[in-house]
């Protein structure tokens, strides 16, 4: 007795539904791109790509849409966060994978992942209350600065760096380590010469994904970066990022002003996609290797 038509139809129907579910992610991605680009691109046409991306003056109500300082600021903050977060995060990952006992691992890993769960507004708030005054009093300047933002963002990207680097380090086969010990290497020599190089592409990916998180971070940054519309010349200067620009003005912007914010979004989206592509590429290369 062959499977009834009804049962066959049911299986086909279910598969159809599941395919459409799977396609929904692509559809949403498509929607997001389309709508941000539809709103953001006309201004590039009207004002000129060069005048937006390399323009220094942001005065959207007066027809100036230069976002160059914000692009630069976004990268400054991102690299600042990386300088703060990468060494700390990598050290933590090495400690977790190579030095800590099993019990410590069981406690530390979730505790550190909890850092990722704290909302970014809370980080921003604590930055305003504690980091900003310390920077202002000890180093001068307004306190709302590249330095403050880098410190807070550096802390915020720790969980990303730790968990992905940790996975990469744990992925290094035990035999590599044993081989190194057998040749009389100390633990640190083994880690430094064998383990870290073997895990390098995963570690690199963790840095890039950390950068992705930092460059996309919004609420914490607008609370502590000071949002000034110029390229910072020192780490104590205030600055405004691409994300901050959107969040600060979207609520009240109209007309070309609003379109300018979408143009900012287009630039941000392109930067993020490039970063994601690089991160994915370096993770994939690891797998092939």
């Amino acid at each position: 007795m062959p499977m009834t038509d009804k049962a066959l139809f049911k299986e086909k129907f279910i598969k159809g539904i599941l395919v459409s579910f799977a396609l929904s992610s692509l559809f949403f991605l498509f929607l997001i791109f389309i709508f941000i680009f539809i709103e953001g691109l006309p201004l590039f046409h009207k004002i000129g790509l060069k005048n937006i991306i390399f323009g220094f003056k942001w005065a959207p109500t007066k027809g100036s849409f230069g976002i160059f300082p914000m692009i630069v600021s976004s990268f400054f903050v991102t690299f600042g966060a990386l300088i703060v977060g990468a060494p700390l995060g990598l050290s933590c990952a090495i400690y977790l994978s190579e030095y800590s006992g099993k019990k410590m691992k069981m406690f530390l890993k979730p505790a550190l992942e909890l850092l990722a769960g704290i909302p970014s507004v809370v980080y921003g708030f604590l930055g305003v209350i504690y980091i900003v005054p310390i920077v202002r009093d000890c180093l001068g300047g307004p306190g709302f600065s590249l330095l403050s933002a880098s410190i807070i963002l550096g802390i915020m990207i720790l969980p990303t760096i730790i968990s992905i680097s940790f996975d990469a380090l744990m992925g290094v086969p035990k035999t590599y380590r044993e081989g190194s010990y057998a040749m009389g290497a100390t633990k640190w020599q083994t880690i430094f010469r064998i383990v870290i190089p073997s895990a390098s592409s995963g570690i690199l990916a963790s840095f890039i994904l950390g950068m992705g998180r930092a460059i996309g971070e919004t609420m914490a940054v607008i609370m502590i970066a000071g949002n000034a519309l110029k390229i910072p010349t020192s780490i104590l200067d205030p600055l405004r990022t691409l994300t901050g620009n959107i969040a600060l003005e979207l609520a009240y912007a109209t007309g070309d002003h609003r379109l300018g914010l979408f143009s900012t979004g287009v630039v941000l989206l392109v930067i993020i996609m490039i970063l994601n592509y690089i991160a994915n590429f370096s993770i994939k290369r690891k797998i092939i290797k």
Binding site: L26, I32, G265, L268, M273, L275
Partner: peptide, 21 residues
């Protein structure tokens, strides 16, 4: 690729998209 890309998009861009759409 679609899923990974969605995961990488920062929340402010979701805000921007949700706002306009």
């Amino acid at each position: 690729f679609g899923v990974e890309s969605l995961a990488g998009i920062p929340s402010i861009l979701y805000g921007l998209f949700g706002f306009i759409f």
